[in-house]
Design a protein around this nucleic acid. Structure first.
Length: 434
DNA sequence: TCTGGGGTCCTAGGACCC
DNA sequence: TCTGGGGTCCTAGGACCC
């Protein structure tokens, strides 16, 4: 009865997710080139993709490519709701569901065959149910490994099903472009192309040592194994995030301490709240600053104890950002600020926190102690839980147009920092169906 | 008037310890 | 007197994914 080595892994991936949801909500959008977003394309319908429009593209550029393009603002709550509904359908077929974004998941159905029939049949049933219950198209790949299944679903798009039988794996992989391999992006693709390697078949014939020289030790090994069709990864549910962060694009702004304080105040406020809500705290604080021209620098500090309080995190983040600016005096403007907290630990809500390791005196006598800070956090968290985010906040943050993106979108993009099973989101892909 | 926001993993060098 | 190897942690940066 033991399930043998068959094609038991499914990769299910909703097609052009955000755009498809909009077309379901407003049938007049069906069959038309449309995109979610405005200043930037968050997702494009297949009709828009036909004009070369991709996620991440500037809005004006998209309109250039397709003057009749329709932009819609986005119904972020609906994306969350429908994404969750689809995951619930998947979980009807197996408890082994590994959600990797709002619209995409791996399934291991080896243990469900006796209930629902062969994997191929389950894939068909999943597609039919998702279509019937949500109106959305979902493509599915069926294969022996996650790598093969993921590639199969990409090949299946749009609205398709591709099964890779055991005896045809090699034939399936060899002619495909290396860019379909998970982890091969523009940089790696370019390096491989420079050596004349464009297909997975060619990659498989390339010496591992040569690949390591080309793309690095770990990446070379991984690439070599995947090209040789070796993928030992299994489907695992309940992953937890290992860092929590937030960022804001600012346009071009003068790099003033005031801007840094205001922006990081807003960002850390979000990050701290998410940490506390999930009962976690972090030891390492990283701040990223982007300058005009996309050059990015970062500064990080690892504290002796994990921190989750907004005031402490803000102090550390502001200091790091100012250090980053001081280290780049030739840059007078910034285009983005980001903060992230990592080295996460589970933290009881009563923690006491001291800042920087081996830097005594950071909290001077005139500074509020950590206990006071946490009390302030706790009251704000409580008020917001009852009356919403906007009910209370740092005055200067509320008055400044720091965020160009609705909070709903930010919440959607947060991946499962909560308890296992509540994991979610990240926007749609720009790759794959291309 | 040059691209949103939230993540993961890897590398290379230096500090430090045994 | 000069010389070693291995492991861990930290920092800064890069590539990549959804």
């Amino acid at each position: 009865m033991a399930p043998g080595p068959g094609s038991n892994i499914l990769h299910a991936d909703l097609d052009a997710f955000y755009a498809s949801v909009e077309q379901v909500l407003d049938p007049s959008l069906q069959g038309r080139p449309m995109a979610v977003g405005g200043g930037v394309v968050l997702a494009a319908s297949y009709q828009a993709k036909a004009f070369g429009i991709t996620a991440g593209m500037a809005g004006w550029r998209a309109r250039q490519l397709c003057p009749e393009l329709v932009f819609v603002g986005g119904h972020f709550r609906e994306y969350q709701r429908l994404g969750d509904a689809v995951m619930a359908i998947l979980e009807d077929f197996t408890p082994l569901v590994e959600r990797i974004s709002i619209d995409e998941a791996f399934l291991d159905v080896a243990g469900s065959v006796h209930l629902f029939g062969p994997p191929e049949r389950m894939a068909e049933d999943i597609r039919a149910r998702v279509r019937a219950e949500t109106g959305l198209a979902i493509s599915v790949g069926v294969a022996r490994t996650k790598h093969l299944a993921k590639i199969a679903s990409q090949v299946a798009k749009p609205d398709g099903l591709v099964v890779v039988p055991l005896e045809r794996e090699g034939d399936f992989l060899r002619p495909l472009p290396v860019g379909l391999i998970w982890g091969v992006g523009p940089a790696t693709r370019a390096r491989l192309a420079a050596r004349g390697i464009t297909t997975i078949g060619q990659l498989a014939k390339t010496d591992e040592a040569a690949l390591q020289l080309l793309v690095g030790r770990a990446a070379g090994s991984k690439l070599s194994a995947l090209a040789a069709n070796i993928d030992p990864r299994s489907v695992v549910g309940g992953r937890r995030v290992s860092s929590v962060g937030a960022q804001s694009a600012l346009g071009r702004r003068r790099a003033s301490p005031d801007l840094v304080r205001t922006t990081l105040g807003y960002l850390v406020d979000r990050v701290g709240g998410r940490l506390r809500r999930s009962g976690r705290a972090g030891r390492t604080v990283t701040v990223r600053v982007r300058f005009p021209g996309m050059r990015t620098v970062s500064r990080s500090a690892t504290l002796r104890q994990a921190v989750a309080s907004t005031p402490t995190l803000t102090d550390v983040a502001v200091e790091l950002a100012l250090a980053a600016l001081a280290g780049n005096p030739e840059e007078t403007e910034v285009t983005l600020l980001a903060v992230s907290v990592s080295h996460l630990v589970d933290e009881p809500p009563t923690q006491l926190v001291l800042p920087f390791a081996s830097r005594p005196g950071r909290l001077g006598p005139d500074e509020p102690d950590e206990e006071t800070r946490r009390a302030v956090d706790a009251s704000m968290d409580t008020i917001r839980a009852r009356f919403g985010r906007q009910a209370v906040g740092f005055a200067n943050v509320e008055l400044s147009p720091v965020s160009r993106v609705p909070d709903e979108f930010r919440e959607l993009a947060e991946r499962g920092s909560g308890p296992p099973g509540s994991a979610s989101p990240a926007p749609s892909s720009s790759r794959g169906a291309g």
